[in-house]
Amino acid sequence: MERQPLLGDNCPDHVIRFYSNMVYRLAFARTGSKNDADDVFQEVFLRYVKKRPLFQTEEHRKAWLIRVTINCSKNFWRSWWKRKVEYLEEAPCFETREDADLHHELQQLAPKYREVIHLFYYEDLSVEEIGKILDRKKSTVRTQLTRARAMLRNILEEDCDV
């Protein structure tokens, strides 16, 4: 099988454009706000441009970006400024009420649950892949997914087949 060519390690522009949505959506899922996602988004690609890490496959690059996005989100979450300052929340304008409700309800979950939900349901990663990227045991990821699903079922109060 022919190796999937890398996007071009020497062209961060391509990489940024290619992974912009992935990074931004994960940052948003983790932080729950556009303001915070904006900051994380900039920080992730700033680190990418500065470090210019070497990857043998696109999967490795994707995993690196996911890991750094989550780390940046955590650091941001822990920062003094974040703990002391409350933003006037800027939520995205969703197309439907259902989307807005889902976003609102997801914010009731802890970030660690939101991140595994996002990686599993949106990035379509397996439990094993999530474990590797987040440096967690498979059993931990599975437990977190199960708990997140249970909480979502309770929150959404409907059989949404989570």
Binding site: Y24, A29, F41, L152, C160, D161
Partner: peptide
């Protein structure tokens, strides 16, 4: 079903 809802919501989120 949840996956579709979650995907739909996320497709509206992107950097300005």
């Amino acid at each position: 079903m949840f996956r579709e809802k979650y995907m739909h919501m996320n497709h509206q989120i992107f950097p300005d």
